[in-house]
Amino acid sequence: MKLSEIPKQSSVKILEITQPFLRTKLMEMGIVPGVEITLTLKAPFYGPIAFAYGNTQISIRLEDAEFIQVNPLAP
């Protein structure tokens, strides 16, 4: 699944990031395939979404979130 399709409050494991610049940028923040993140917020009108990784909350535009392939974790 793509991160853009995940419902709020669900935790997922990152499988792959397909856009190279986004991949490197996230890597520099410690977010690499294998880490677990939680989708925390969705802005209205299909605006950006926010996810939590450790103690950081990061927002990303919906169309960029499509590049992030994830696997939902059992709640």
């Binding site: 610049f21 917020l41 926010a50 990061i58 990303i60």
Partner: peptide
């Protein structure tokens, strides 16, 4: 610029 991706931290 393809490199600049909107990625914004939402600090506590």
């Amino acid at each position: 610029d393809k490199r600049s991706i909107y990625l914004m931290e939402m600090p506590d």
